[in-house]
């Protein structure tokens, strides 16, 4: 599986994502600068966590205006896999690639902790190596991870089996405990928790590996 990580100004989990991908795939991950207008030939594009443009105005809003977004939309349109983690999820909702929006945490504070998630759906390139209903433990680290969408959208997401991860103990006020969702074509995943931080037993566990293994199995 060939992968690229997009680097926006003040992305800060870009290297973490690359490290995790390289560890899991054994191949080099390409770093793509936000001002590039073309993507290299890859199977997976990752929009990493961080504070692109300082999270000024709204998280992800200005990153969505960067040059590379056109190529990412085209990649997604062709059915290419896109993974948005944390700030990357925010960019994906701002861009319209995923529905809804991520608002300020209900507790109004940034929150960094390990949370329990249930894997809701395994019919996807991102989750097939997990068991349906499996509990995994992933860290969250965000100030604006409170997922919002109107009821009709939420019903549709649930009806289509596109709610992929749910919080077991909702840390941020997200609607229906949603932690991660898929787009309609099931090739774009956005989630607030950080799977790339849990691929090494020494630094928090290995529960994130399943996501990367699923992608490798599907896309290689």
């Amino acid at each position: 599986m060939k992968s690229a990580v997009i680097v926006f100004p003040a992305s800060n989990c870009d290297r973490d994502a690359a490290t995790a991908l390289e560890q899991m795939t054994g191949t080099k991950t390409l770093m793509v600068w936000h001002q590039d207008s073309d993507l290299p030939e890859v199977d997976l594009v990752v929009l990493p966590g961080g504070f692109s443009y300082g999270d000024y105005l709204r998280c992800g809003a200005m990153a969505n205006q960067s040059k590379i977004m056109g190529a990412i939309k085209a990649h997604a349109g062709r059915g290419g896999a896109v993974l948005g983690i944390c700030n990357g999820f925010q960019v994906l909702t701002e861009s319209g690639l995923l529905p809804g929006a991520l608002m300020r945490n209900a507790g109004l504070k940034f929150i960094c902790k390990q949370v329990g998630l249930s894997v809701e759906e395994t019919q996807s390139a991102f989750t097939r190596k997990y068991d349906k209903g499996q509990t995994i433990s992933l860290p969250v680290a965000h100030g604006e991870g409170n997922y919002y969408a109107d009821d009709a959208t939420l019903d549709r997401l649930e009806g289509d089996g596109r709610v992929m991860f749910r919080y077991q103990d909702n840390p941020n006020g997200s609607a229906r405990n949603i932690a991660g969702i898929l787009n309609e074509k099931r090739n774009v995943l956005g989630l607030m928790p950080h799977p790339e931080r849990v691929v090494d037993p020494l630094t928090g566990g290995t529960d994130g590996r399943g996501l990367f293994q699923s992608l490798i199995e599907t896309l290689s």
Binding site: A20, F110, C112, R197, D200
Partner: peptide
């Protein structure tokens, strides 16, 4: 306090806040 700090970014935090000393690989 420390749950408001990102203490695991960079993927090398081996001991998080709450112990005698933090350990970072």
């Amino acid at each position: 306090v420390w749950e408001q700090y990102d203490n695991s970014v960079m993927n090398d935090t081996v001991q998080h806040p709450g112990g005698d000393a933090a350990v970072v690989r």
